[in-house]
């Protein structure tokens, strides 16, 4: 057996991403990430669909050595930059994407909390916001975020700390404006 015939040395062609399977697995993450990145909830579904359409078109470029989620997040980030919209008011009807409960009161409370959280996120710069959303909303660890955003881990820790400070400051300010009402 020659060197080239050894199975371990055979270089397989890169596997294209199975986008249909990835859609079911990562769609909720992409949707939340887009909202976290500043896309309005009413636009988020359209943009999330667009993310997977782009992924489908570019599936041959997918690097299987990296997590699919990181690749999809990169696409989402680019599209979010183009589609970011300024939220004009606190209208809750635009937050219908996420009403996940049959209980109207709980749904209203959740929508109100989402609206408030998005307003607090507006106080963060894009860099802080990205890291903050991935850690606080998605529950990713700092090394996971560092891999996803290709940043040093210490930068992630630093941005998380700063992001929390700014978020808490904005939350306190908004609560004070609303007379200390809960979410």
């Amino acid at each position: 057996m020659t060197v080239l015939e050894r199975p371990a040395l055979v270089i397989a062609p890169p596997a294209a991403l199975d986008v249909a399977a990835a859609f079911r697995e990562h769609y909720p993450f992409v949707l939340r990430a887009l909202v976290g990145l500043g896309v309005t909830p009413i636009d988020a579904d359209d943009v999330a669909q667009e993310v997977f359409v782009v992924a489908h078109r570019r599936r041959g470029e997918f690097d299987p050595s990296r997590p699919a989620r990181a690749w999809l997040y990169g696409i989402a980030r680019g599209l979010a930059r183009n589609r970011r919209r300024v939220r004009r008011d606190e209208s809750l009807d635009v937050l219908s994407v996420g009403v996940s409960t049959e209980d109207p009161e709980r749904a209203a409370a959740q929508s109100e909390a989402l609206s408030l959280a998005l307003r607090c996120l507006d106080a963060l710069s894009t860099k802080l916001r990205e890291v903050f959303v991935l850690t606080e909303f998605e529950g990713l660890t700092a090394p996971e975020v560092a891999e996803l955003l290709e940043l040093p881990v210490n930068t992630v820790y630093s941005r998380v700390r700063l992001g929390r400070e700014r978020f808490d400051g904005a939350l306190a300010k908004l609560r004070a404006q609303r007379g200390g009402k809960g979410p």
């Binding site: 079911r24 939340r32 994407v97 996420g98 996940s100 989402l114 998005l118 607090c120």
Partner: peptide, 20 residues
């Protein structure tokens, strides 16, 4: 607050099927 906001963005299986 973040827990409630995240809950607002949860996708029901029926919505995921529709999106797919």
């Amino acid at each position: 607050l973040i827990g409630q906001a995240r809950a607002a963005l949860e996708i029901r299986p029926i919505d995921l099927d529709e999106a797919a």
